[in-house]
Each structure stands twice: as C-alpha cells, then as structure tokens.
Design a binder for these strands. Sequence first.
DNA 1: TCCTTCTGCTTACC
DNA 2: ACTGGTAAGCAGAAGAC
Length: 801
Amino acid sequence: MPEDLTFQILDVSYEVEAGRPVIEIWARDDKGRRIVLLDDSFRPYFYALLEEGQDPSAVSAAVRRLSKPRSPITGVDLVEARYFGRPVKALRVQTVIPETVRDYREEVAKLPGVKEVLEADVRFSIRYLIDKNLYPMRWYRASGERVQRNDFVVDAVYKLSSDLAEEPSLADVDPLEGLRIMAFDIEAYNPQGSPNPSRDPVVVIGMAFNDGEKVQLQAKGHDDKDVLREFVELVRRKDPDIIVGYNQNSFDWPYLLERAKVNGLKLEVGRKRGAEPSPSVFGHISVQGRLNVDLYNFAEEIEEVKVKSLDEVADYLGVMPKDKRVNIEWWKIAEYWDSPERRGLLLAYNVDDVTSTLGLAYQFLPFGAQLSQISGLPLDQVAAASVAFRLEMRFMREARKLGELVPNRKEEEARAFETYTGAIVLEPKPGVHKDVAVLDFASMYPSIMVKYNVGPDTLLKEGERCERENQAPGVGHRFCADRPAFFRRVLERFLKWRAEVKAAMKKYPGGSPQYRLLNERQRAIKVLANASYGYMGWAAARWYCKGCAESVTAWGRELITKAVSIARSLGLQVYYGDTDSLFVANEPEKVSRLIEEITKGLEFDIKVDKVYSRVFFTEAKKRYAGLTADGKIDIVGFEAVRGDWSELAKETQANVAEIVLRTGDVRKAIEYVKAVINDLRSGKANVEKLVIWKTLTKGLDEYEAEAPHVYAARMMEKLGFKVDVGSKIGYVIVKGEGPVSRRARPYFIVKPTEIDYNYYIDKQVVPAALRILELFGVSERELKSGARQASLFDYLGKKGG
DNA sequence: TCCTTCTGCTTACC
DNA sequence: ACTGGTAAGCAGAAGAC
C-alpha cells in the first residue's frame, strides 16, 4: 500500500545494488521521522554532440557497438537541443552503472562524427537532483511503499512510487526548524608540536546539541579507545541531522578516522550501517545520511576577520566574547592534559570551543540553508563549494529547463592564461574634505549583463550578424540582442525573485524569525547574482567567456566615466571613485540631479550609499578614512584594516585617524603617537600586539625569496609543528644582526626582552601613523624626537579633561 | 658599499 | 585547487657605480 509522504530533502546519495544504481533520498517527514526514499528507476547518461551534417543513425550504431556487459548501453536517442543558444543535434547515451560513464565518455568522444561529449562529468546524485528539479532543504510530497531494510539507520525506508512535487505551503517555513544539530570538537594529545594521529590519542571530545545537551568525553590517560567508542554511540543515540564543527573536514574527521583505525574500531557515525565518513568533493567529508557542515567554510567568507580562529570569529559575531572564555594555546594541550591542576582548564576550553561552534551554527546555517534551497547543492556541499560552483549549479538547472546542453568544465591549464582590462580607479584628491556623498551603482556588473544581453551564447563571432546588436566600447565585442541571453534570463529571474522576497519582508517586523528567514534568502540570491561577472572570467567555468567579462568591465568603465562628466558638468566636485562608486561633494540638489541624469539618461540605478561629514585621502588609491554622518569611523584599505600588520601599528593608526577626523587636532595625534613610541622604547608593549600574521600561499620549498614569515614557518616546522599551504604564521622580530627575515621568530617562543622594539617603532608604528600624518606635514623625525615623558595614560587623561 | 630599481609576496578594494 | 582585475607597500634580490 503506497503511503502519501510529505518530507524535506536533506541529502541525496546512491548505491549500486544488484548491478543497478539506486538513488537514496535522505529526508525527514512532517511527522518528525527520518526517512529514506529509494528510487531505482534513474539511470546515468550523457550526450554526444554530433558534427554538423552527420548521419545520426551511423553514429548511433557505432555508439551501441561500444556497449559492454558489465554496464550495457541501454539507450541511444537522438535529441534536438540547444548549445550556447544555437540549435544542435545530439545523441543521448544511457547506461546503467554511473562509474562506467567515464569510460564510455572517452570512447564515444573518439568516434567519427562526434564533436564533443557533454554532461558526462555531472555526478550521478547531483544529476538526479537536477533532472527531477529537486532542491535540498525544500519540502516535497510523494507516495512511497514501505520496505524493510536494516542497512539504513532511520525510522522508515520507502520505495518511491510517484514523482516528487514541491509542497508550496511549506516554502516559507524555516528549513532548520525541527532539525537536530550536533556540534563537536576534539582535542588531540600533542607532546611534540602538531599531533600525529598514528601516535597521539584524542584526549577530549566535546559535543553540544541544539536540544541543550552537552557531553564531554575524556580519554583514560593516553588511551582513547573508549572515547572513540562512546563518541560513535552518542552520535547514533542523538541521531543528528546536521553535524557541525570548525575545520573538522581538515582536522577532526581525518584525525578520528585514523585513531579509529589505530584502535581497530570503525567510525560508524552515518545513517547507513558500515559506512564511515569519507572524502567527497570540494575537500568536504561526507557522513552518510547526515549533513556534515564545516563552519570554517562560512567563516572564510568574513573578510573583516583576519585571523579566522574559532575564538576570533565567535568574538566578532558576538557568539562568545574572547575575554569571557577560556583560552589556552593549542600547542600546549598535552601539557594541560598531563597536569592534574590544569586539566580542568583544558576541559573548560573544549566546552567553550564546542559551545562557540554551536553558536556559529545558529549564525551561519540559516544562510547556508537558503543557499542550498536556491543553488540546489546539499547543505554540506554548498558550504564547502566556492561562490562560482554554487552559481554554476543553479546555471545547470536553468540550462536544463531551457533545453540547453551544459558545456564541459575545462581544465584550467588547457586554456591559455589570458587576462583582460578591469575597472577604473579614479585618482583621489588628497586632503581632508567635508561633507562628501558616496554614490554607488546598484549591482553594476549584473545590470550591465542584463542591459546589454551579455553571454557566451549572444557573443557574436567575426562576420556573424544580428538585427539588433550591442557593441562594447573600446573592446569591440558585439552581442546579439535579438534573443535573451542565458545569463540574462537567469539574472532577471534572480532580480525578480529578490524583489518579491524583499516585498514579503515588509509584512513582518524586523527581527522576527520570518523576517530573518526572508532576509537570508534575499542575501543568498544577491550573493549568487553578484558572482555572475566573476564567473564568466573564471577560466575553469563551464560558461567561461573572456570576451563577455572584458565587455562588462568596458561598459563599466564607460559608465563611471560618463557619471564623472555629468557630475563635473553640474559643478559637483569629484573626490574619488572605484569601479562603481563616486565620491562627490554633498550638495543635495546637485546630487539629486546627478542621480536623475544617470538613472534617466544612462539607464542605470545609482543611489547615495553613505555621507561622510569628514573624509580624507592620501595620494594612494583604495585607501581612505571617513567619519560618517552618524558618527562612525570608516577605515578603508589602510594598514589598520590589513591582517599583515602588528596589532599595535594598526591600533595606533586607527586612533590617529580617529583623532584627526573627530577633532582635527593634529598635535593631539602627534602626542599620542609619541606616547606609543615611548612605551615601546621602555619595553612596555604587550608582545601579543607585536605579532605579525602572514599566510603561506605555497609550500615552504617553493619560495624564491626568504620572507620573514617563511623563515619563521621553517622554524616552526623544525619545532614539530605542521605548517601547510594556507597556514597563518604569526611572527615577531627579535634583536640581532642581519636581515629582518632572519630575525623573525614564531611569536610563541619569544620572551619580551628579546624583541627588537626599534623594528616596531621604525617599521610598524611610525610608518603606519605617518601614512596619515604625512598629509599634515608631520615628519618621521617629529614623531621620533623630543621624546617627552608622556604615556598613553597621560594622553587619555588629557582627552578626558 | 651605497643607493636605486626590480621582483616576489601578501592582502586590501570593488 | 575551485570567480575577476586594480592597487599598495614591505623585504629581498639584482643592478649600478
């Protein structure tokens, strides 16, 4: 008896059973049950694009002859489709076992009459989602027949007996409502720098659940067998739908897997018997039937936070203030574990970490769930995927709806490295300026793409003609305007959808759960739409189109240049501009006219983004600081907002900027800097504030030059720490002879007395302060000489009085 | 050996 | 491994004398 089911799709996987693939839809239903729906009717396939004028039946016969018994070719059908907007003929080649598509692809590609093999590189479970038009995290209805299966650890397993239909009444329900979330974090014993999983045990595992329960497992001395066993047991008992961690794809899971192996255990934490977590796409680790989400992936997208450790990110997001938690240096974990007095601190540290992780989940997952609902990638993958992949997934779905064949992903090396001209940055007018309005074009690049119908399918080749054409200025590319471009269709849909969501938001009070849900949704749409330009210029993109990207920036340059001319013709002073922004004198009437002329004349939307009551520029582009009308200080581009300067230099510069902007009192700023210098001279500075952080962008042996952070990283390696591409190296400069790089040390091995304070004065604090003060004629000598016995305390005292 | 210029490297802006 | 170009600025390397 088939049952009617209403359920939310969480993930999709497949397994080959008895020589045929079975799709497994992991879901939870409206009764709160965790269920699996099986579909054994779906088969892998790909397309063979035919050369023009080819006899399809001859090619078809040749394809059929390739069939092998293990996975026979079960269908070769001629289809009329479109490829880059143009009508084409292709053969749809179907087989049985997904893994064999790869072999057939190679052989079919070699057949005479076959121009290209398409869509053979789309993974089978994703193929299913695309073809059935299913979006993870959304709700569907279907009927299914209950089957008895004890290889699945779920409440019920069904064999699908109908198609899935989206359930519109549940479209605006919070997709996370009712889902079980588990955060976890392990502490590994590390007596020699970085822990080695083949040797060092897991000493603590912390787990926090969204039902409020918290559990902490501890090793017995240096034996972690029971910890691992209890961990598996707990995961299965609490049965979370979503497992979150911080960097668990690179650390916790691989470590646990290795420890399980060493202990002769199996890490059966999935919803399928016998299955252990396993590496999947995008460096992601997949846990069968659960969504394993590495929150570090979301943290990476916050550019305001430079050092993306869990404590920093949690602090920034207000999840857990840094000064209200236990912080211990991670390389001392073994020391804490072995010390009876300090072990408690390690345990508290672990609790804070896992609590922060769950807190981060509440911050990030609502957005992630929307990205999943919109892009069509399962939540665990959408987190790990790049912005371009998320967009591409949606493109593939749209292509299918339009009967367009999906181009192949190209190997980046296969294309010649080609760059093109980008945006314009206007020369800033140095000095302090009062009352400056910042105008911003709304979504400039997507708007250009829509207006001029830009896309690989509308880009005209030499000699091709269309009735209506748009020609990009300067670069010459022409785009056919007779039919809507593929990108345009998708972008227009996004724009319309976003407008609807924003309209719906108005019905709810700000801060209400429904408001927040819709807000995350409109944000996710915006993020995807804004990625479209960069996507076209990405050499590995399926819809790569250098000419398109080049044309978009050309129109962008024309647009901002015209806007500047209009501003000048209105008598408006232009101070600066970058890509799609314009800093002009805030004369309301003229600004309104400027906006009107751009909106009506150039047909692009532009609006006042913010107003600075004071803003200053040096001669450098991409750097300025301003005081907004509501009293906030903005610092853009300067050292104060860079991650590769010491905290002390950044803080000094930020304070100098603030003093100058708020009071206009340069003397005060000079006195302040002098006080900082004096503190340094007397060795009063806090070592933590002197650490300089830099990222290793390649392997240690690939560096040509011996930069300070490379030197410090080599030293760390010798000390037993694992340093990799992407590692953030924190170093300080110590006293001594020779180049700076040779005097760089990992910050945690340095005593305050060893620090070269002069380096910090000459190369950090003074240059950072001078970057701003130079504008007012202040010299280096002035800052460093006449060292008055003032301290920061004196300065603050004066400020107060 | 001193000084300048170039290159490598990293990270900001949009 | 995984969107684009533009730009600043440090430190080291190479070139100039």
